[in-house]
């Protein structure tokens, strides 16, 4: 009985924090979303579901949702596959491997602002790094990546693979290290090739890690903000106006707090639905994994 009380004392600070800064805000968002409130104005009339109904018929909102979806659909799997392969690569017992692990992690600790400045430069039309490389290879290319509607989103996606590699790689590395060596030995006895071992031992054993990486990456992909704010401002032609930026704009530039809250809540529903879906899909492979 006393231990119960102690346990609650131990979790109390974190729980209180969770309550105040995560759970209550969710309900506060919901509450605010029923009001029309321009934050500079004193009036705050109750408008029922008007913010939702007008958001749902707004093409720009759907455009933003679509942009976030295509950002996530490409950047998440791509980021995961690259990170997994790199993790396998750096799991080898080679001399100086820690140096490489460090190098591969470095882009992830780079500040978003510095990264954005750097990548704007990389993507410049004439003397940007990419176009310079291409012309060094004899291909004269002048694509203005960040101002070309066909390219801008993929430019951001490509950059996200670079910046997101570190944590994903480390998580996969941790997963790989945790796989019992006996499984590989058994596979080797059966004459399984390296590729085969990767396919039938490494991958299934990494399911929990993969789920974790998948969930966290998807959630953060849906909230991406800094690169868009710094690099494209949602342009060109709204092709990079992702939902995180769209809501920022509604709330902190147009100051329509009620409307932005409604959009926030819709985003939350979408994120929760995707997370639940991913969890379901991966559930079968999670035997033996203790979530709680």
């Amino acid at each position: 009985m006393k231990r119960q009380r102690t346990a609650w004392l131990f979790v109390a600070p974190a729980t209180l924090h969770l309550l105040v800064f995560a759970l209550i805000p969710i309900f506060a968002s919901l509450y605010l979303s029923f009001f029309k409130w321009h934050i500079l104005k004193p009036a705050r009339p109750f408008v029922g579901i008007h913010n939702y109904s007008s958001t749902l018929v707004e093409p720009k909102f759907w455009n933003a949702m679509w942009n976030s979806t295509r950002y996530a659909i490409v950047s998440v799997p791509l980021g995961i596959i690259v990170a997994l392969l790199v993790a396998v690569l750096v799991n080898q017992k080679l001399k100086g491997i820690t140096v490489f692990r460090t190098i591969f992690y470095t882009p992830s600790i780079t500040s978003g602002v510095a990264t954005a400045m750097l990548w704007i430069y990389i993507y410049l039309p004439e003397h940007g790094l990419i176009n310079s490389m291409l012309s060094a290879l004899g291909k004269n290319n002048k694509t203005d990546f960040l101002n070309d509607p066909a390219w801008a989103m993929w430019a951001l996606v490509f950059m996200s693979v670079w910046t997101g590699l570190g944590p994903r790689m480390v998580l996969f590395l941790a997963g790989i290290v945790g796989i019992p060596q006996t499984l590989y030995e058994a596979a080797e006895l059966d004459g399984a090739s390296m590729l085969r071992q990767f396919w039938s031992v490494t991958l299934p054993m990494l399911a929990p890690t993969t789920l974790f990486v998948l969930l966290t990456s998807t959630i953060s992909a849906f909230q991406v903000f800094t690169p868009v704010y710094m690099m494209t401002k949602g342009g060109p032609l709204d092709t990079t106006d992702v939902i995180g930026y769209h809501i920022y704009w509604e709330a902190w530039s147009k100051f329509n707090v009620g409307m932005a809250s409604a959009q926030t809540f819709l985003l939350l529903i979408v994120i929760a639905a995707i997370a639940a879906f991913q969890y379901r899909i991966m559930k079968n492979q999670l035997e033996g994994y203790s979530v709680a």
Partner: peptide, 8 residues
């Protein structure tokens, strides 16, 4: 405009 941006 991209010429201008590219020149820096």
């Amino acid at each position: 405009l991209s010429q201008v941006a590219a020149s820096g």
